[in-house]
């Protein structure tokens, strides 16, 4: 039961990050490695703010803003300086490693008894004692759903339509008298905002910031998106945004299963990468070739 709760908690939190990866990877068709830097950036900002006694909910919003700024920079590097998409992300990811260290002050920042979005006086007074074991998972679920609904709502606005159109057909967007570069920058900003907010929530749930917590974020995000969208490929009533969050829980479940089968926690990143590879191989569209001769 404890493992299941842990899987759900982490699944929902990483699900918010996966929503961001969904925007870049699926909608914009932009392999954005900034994710590996913006996730810990949100965590670093949160660790510093909570240590200074700032309201944890405010920390969420500030993290979102920091992520948006970071994503915007990636977009500007790509659009204005015409650096290739993959390289723009690598540049930002590498630079952010040092920036994050600067923000946090050191490679490890533990949070002791500071209040978080999961554990604060107001929440504790609302939740009955019998549910206190589920408090974190419920809050994580609520945060994921709110993020999902907000993203759904955005994608249904005129601006959201344009974002979807850029990933679909850049020529059409130019013909609509819109600058595709600007739309890409906006998309990257929103995506990294979500990623950084997810990092902030993760930091609050784990009660520490660690400089290496971002390593592999993009792999986890991609795995979540690919599992989610493939599992629900033929189900029309599940929106892609919901599918991504469910994918995140499923993926976390697979990782937990691997660890429970005797792999050690230090093998975590290997499991992450290996599972991702398996998923890619399973979900690849294989063209059925007709054999020329028997």
């Amino acid at each position: 039961m404890g493992i299941l709760i842990g899987v759900l908690e982490q699944g929902f939190i990483y699900g918010i990050m996966a929503l961001g990866v969904y925007i870049t990877y699926k909608i914009l068709d932009f392999p954005d490695l900034t994710t590996d830097g913006s996730f810990p950036a949100g965590a670093a900002v949160t660790a510093v703010m909570l240590t200074a006694g700032v309201n944890p909910y405010l920390a969420l919003i500030v993290s979102f803003g920091v992520g948006m700024f970071v994503g915007m920079l990636t977009g500007i590097i790509h659009v204005k300086f015409k650096v290739r998409d993959l390289l723009s992300g690598i540049i930002m990811m590498t630079a952010l490693y040092s920036i994050n260290l600067r923000i946090a002050g050191k490679a490890n920042v533990p949070l002791f008894n500071q209040s978080t979005v999961f554990d604060n006086a107001v929440l504790n007074s609302i939740f009955p004692v019998t549910l206190s074991a589920y408090q974190t998972v419920i809050i994580a679920f609520v945060l994921a759903i709110v993020s999902k609904l907000a993203l759904d709502a955005y994608l249904n606005t005129k601006s959201g339509f344009l974002l979807r159109a850029v990933g679909n057909n850049e020529t059409l967007v130019t013909n609509l008298a819109k600058d595709i570069g600007l739309v890409k920058i906006v998309g990257l900003a929103i995506a990294n905002g979500l990623v950084a907010m997810s990092g902030s929530i993760m930091c609050q749930q784990q009660r520490f910031f660690d400089i290496s917590m971002g390593t592999g974020t993009v792999v986890i995000g991609l795995a979540n998106v690919i599992i989610g969208t493939n599992v629900f490929k033929n189900v029309s009533f599940v929106k892609a945004t919901s599918a991504v969050i469910i994918g995140s829980v499923l993926y976390k479940g697979c990782v937990a299963l691997a660890i429970s089968q005797g792999m050690s926690a230090t093998d975590m990143k290997f499991i992450t990468a290996f599972l991702f590879l398996i998923i890619l191989i399973i979900t690849m569209d294989r063209k059925k070739k007709v054999k020329k001769s028997a």
Binding site: T157, K158, F161, N168, L176
Partner: peptide
């Protein structure tokens, strides 16, 4: 746009040269 519905395509074209803001698509 192949991944968008007919209605969404019409709506996005109808908004050409106007602002693509946070109003309903």
């Amino acid at each position: 746009c192949p991944d968008m519905t007919i209605l969404e395509n019409m709506a996005i074209a109808d908004n050409k040269a106007k602002k693509y803001n946070l109003r309903l698509g």
